[in-house]
Simulated scan of single mutants.
Amino acid sequence: MEGGLQPESVGDVITRVGARAGIKIRFTGQSPRRGLATSSRLKGHDQIVIAKQGEWAPHSKVLAGYLEVVDQWEENALLGVL
């Protein structure tokens, strides 16, 4: 595309492609951002670094919620206790 894609257009493309593929979950432009966050955290990257790359505020509650899914298994207070 000569002018490139606008941020909204990326989300529209992702949603349309998911629907065409018959995926029951509705993917949006947020889907790859969340994937970036969770995959990066699984590799041990710091929340501030992930926030900068994904353009979240440094202490974003939304980002923290995404990372909690990963961290609940890696930083569990019961690891080694039971």
Rank of each mutant, 00 (worst) to 15 (best):
1 M>C: 11
2 E>Y: 04
2 E>W: 06
3 G>M: 00
4 G>C: 06
4 G>N: 07
5 L>C: 12
5 L>Q: 10
8 E>I: 03
8 E>K: 08
10 V>W: 05
13 V>H: 07
13 V>C: 01
14 I>E: 03
14 I>V: 07
15 T>R: 08
16 R>E: 15
16 R>G: 13
17 V>D: 14
17 V>W: 09
18 G>N: 03
18 G>P: 02
19 A>L: 03
21 A>N: 04
22 G>M: 04
23 I>Q: 05
26 R>K: 09
26 R>A: 15
26 R>Q: 13
27 F>I: 15
27 F>A: 14
27 F>D: 13
28 T>N: 07
29 G>R: 00
29 G>I: 02
29 G>A: 03
30 Q>P: 03
30 Q>C: 11
30 Q>M: 12
31 S>E: 05
31 S>C: 09
31 S>K: 02
32 P>L: 09
32 P>C: 08
32 P>V: 09
34 R>V: 12
34 R>M: 12
35 G>C: 06
36 L>D: 10
38 T>C: 12
38 T>D: 13
39 S>L: 14
40 S>F: 13
40 S>E: 06
40 S>Y: 09
41 R>W: 04
42 L>Y: 13
42 L>M: 14
43 K>Q: 10
44 G>Y: 13
44 G>N: 05
45 H>K: 08
45 H>Y: 13
45 H>M: 13
45 H>C: 12
46 D>V: 04
47 Q>D: 03
47 Q>T: 00
49 V>D: 03
50 I>V: 04
50 I>D: 06
51 A>I: 00
52 K>T: 03
52 K>Q: 09
53 Q>S: 14
53 Q>E: 10
54 G>F: 01
55 E>S: 15
55 E>G: 14
56 W>I: 05
56 W>T: 07
56 W>E: 08
57 A>F: 13
57 A>L: 15
57 A>V: 14
58 P>V: 14
60 S>Q: 08
60 S>F: 06
60 S>R: 06
60 S>V: 07
61 K>N: 10
61 K>E: 14
62 V>R: 08
63 L>E: 01
63 L>C: 01
64 A>N: 11
65 G>A: 09
65 G>I: 06
65 G>F: 10
66 Y>I: 01
68 E>C: 02
68 E>A: 10
69 V>T: 05
69 V>P: 00
70 V>C: 07
70 V>I: 05
73 W>D: 11
74 E>L: 02
75 E>T: 10
75 E>G: 07
75 E>C: 06
77 A>L: 10
78 L>Q: 11
79 L>V: 12
79 L>N: 11
80 G>W: 01
80 G>P: 00
80 G>C: 02
82 L>G: 11
